[in-house]
Design a protein around this nucleic acid. Structure first.
Lengths: 236, 236
DNA sequence: TTGACGAGTATACACTGTATACCTATAATG
DNA sequence: CATTATAGGTATACAGTGTATACTCGTCAA
């Protein structure tokens, strides 16, 4: 047997990431997903960053699914719904929308993480509960509140992170993609695709988040408010 | 060299799938994705269904990304936006929504396919153009039309196929998941999560598509109509 | 007859998640 | 103190994945 190759520690350098534990692993994995895409998150890659073997991670995480759960929790840990205590429910909902946006801007991998079918853990439950509270207080029935919240979450997700491959800070790549879209849609045969050609600049501009998002958020709010108005006048 | 192991064809059975070609591959891959999930689509698996080597597929498909493109095209081939020629734009939009729903019911893998960041091919362009046409005729500006269409598409997708792992016809599994959700949310501590507990039945019921969808579609339409109403009175 | 070419095979490489068996330094216990 | 248990980590292996490269045919044209 040729085992015991490196019995003693090579150098006494303390692991700068701190000792291995579930939270640290989840945080590192989340950071990896946000900066290099969700596909970059693998046991071997993660282990390498902790200067450790892939299997060592299984001490703290059941399997990949559990790892993704832990990442989700890590992402949602610092998220506080009730940060802003507005009086008008419209402002509260709008606040929720923009808080979710901020969350997804810092964590683009949220798209992948939040759309997994899994039973939620504490942080997600907390947010879910608080959001339902806002909508219930606004006068919506339980089912309506649930559906509206889902509506909002889905819409915000797809408004902020366009496409699956989005990673944090990839400004240059993003700009390039916008140019590519403009070139593509702009050069389509005009008589076959008149609408697409005229809309090409807008399609391309959709990679610019701020403007795009404000527009989408307004549309979203318009829907919720219209729905509220179409109900028996019980709203606050 | 130990090549040429099986020189002659084992049996003379004609490939029941027909001779290999791009369309057949795409169709088969799409079917596979719809029935066993998008992860079941691999070159080796696909090749096996055609009784062929994995590398043979590369004759007709550049790489996996191109395969997914081909699948998307295959899925959208039979989709016709202008099937229903309603006069009222509201009915047209509603028709579009329900047509998209039907598409995603037959092809649950559409969620994965449609949310990829890629330049669209002909079928997708055709649908895009037609949809923009409807919205432009309704009086929306180019940018508005584009954003509303995205809004609609995203919302329908997330309304129809909840979660990533959805496959066609998995009725039993779906029912089980609903029961699991009900048990989970229903048994949360009531004083910590009052809203979630009261909403538990609705959350569980969201696996029942028909009811869930009608509700979501109404909310969606309410948003679009409200947005239309908030504009200078130019709508038809 | 030769040669090109289309279609498919064989093999290999670097990845992935994860099961199993092992080692070893520390802590608990007789 | 001596022994044993255990927590934390390593090593290896297996079945998958996408795909690059090289090869082998059968058919058809010059």
């Amino acid at each position: 047997m040729v085992r015991n190759k490196n019995d003693q520690q090579p150098e006494g350098n303390p692991n700068q990431k701190g000792s291995l534990n579930r939270e640290a692993i989840a945080a590192q994995a989340l950071h990896l997903a946000d900066t290099e895409g969700i596909d970059a998150v693998s046991f071997r890659r993660l282990a390498q960053e902790f200067e450790v073997t892939a299997m060592a991670i299984y001490r703290y995480v059941d399997n990949k699914d559990d790892l993704l759960d832990a990442m989700t929790e890590s992402m949602l840990a610092s998220f506080d719904v009730s940060a802003q205590q507005e009086t008008d429910w419209r402002d509260q909902v709008r606040g929720l929308i923009y808080a979710l946006r901020q969350l997804l801007l810092t964590h683009p991998s949220g798209r992948s993480l939040l759309s997994r079918r899994a039973l939620p853990s504490t942080n997600r439950l907390r947010i879910f509960e608080a959001s339902l509270g806002i909508l219930r207080d606004a006068g919506f029935e339980p089912q309506e509140a649930f559906l509206i919240f889902e509506h909002i979450l889905n819409q915000v997700v797809s408004l902020v992170v366009t496409g699956d491959g989005y990673v944090k800070g990839a400004e240059e790549e993003r700009r390039l993609w916008g140019a590519k879209l403009l070139a593509f849609y702009g050069s389509l045969p005009k008589q076959e695709y008149p609408r697409l050609v005229e809309t090409a600049p807008n399609i391309a501009a959709s990679v610019d988040m701020d403007h795009h998002f404000k527009f989408g958020a307004d549309l979203l709010m318009a829907g919720v408010e219209a729905f509220a108005a179409s109900k028996p006048p019980r709203k606050l």
